[in-house]
Design a protein around this nucleic acid. Sequence first.
DNA 1: TCGATCCGTAAGCGGTAACTTACGGAAGGT
DNA 2: ACCTTCCGTAAGTTACCGCTTACGGATCGA
Lengths: 103, 103
Amino acid sequence: MDAWSALADPTRREIFARLSVRPRSVTDLASELPVSRPAVSQHLKVLKDADLVRVRAEGTRRIYSADPAGLREMRQELEGFWSATLANFKRLVEDGPPAEEDG
Amino acid sequence: MDAWSALADPTRREIFARLSVRPRSVTDLASELPVSRPAVSQHLKVLKDADLVRVRAEGTRRIYSADPAGLREMRQELEGFWSATLANFKRLVEDGPPAEEDG
DNA sequence: TCGATCCGTAAGCGGTAACTTACGGAAGGT
DNA sequence: ACCTTCCGTAAGTTACCGCTTACGGATCGA
């Protein structure tokens, strides 16, 4: 599952948002959310597979933190959409000529 | 369905990517993609509900174009994730103090 | 008016995502 | 050694998503 699909789920996006503020354990996350601890574990696995989070062992606890790696690609692709959309939209409202195909 | 879920689907993201370059009709899009025309129509409805695309009638054809509106919100949220993740990650690799809760 | 083209939607199907409960392993304290 | 806490995974259920085919409305040309 890619980063787009990983962050599409509201619960997973909420988990990632919290981890982007500061690292937390699985139990801590579960206590803050309206889902069970196993559900959080499963969400974290998805986020980890998408390189959106990292894990660090601390005794029996697993401390998860946000990882820039997975987010970087996604951000770049979205920035591409953004600039292309703005340029295209600008031509439309200015009633300008249609765009040439370049991608 | 919000913009995150709308762009999570690969086919829908491909449609949006093409529309961000230049507007196209439903049939044109379908001819470029490995799915049927009704499927494209359904995808466009999702994108439209998320304010990611607009429609303009041109005879019997419906010309769809990328709309900055829906993308703006999503982009801002992702930029928030990005800066928070970077800041948090920086503290971690510097072995600095844990972050305070501020949202 | 008749046919062709463009399009949206309903109906139905197969796949899978998200959640729960149940279980078992690993580490720490006493 | 024993109990507790923390965690991941398997199994099963429910619900939704994406796709197809089929159908009907709308517009244009002859």
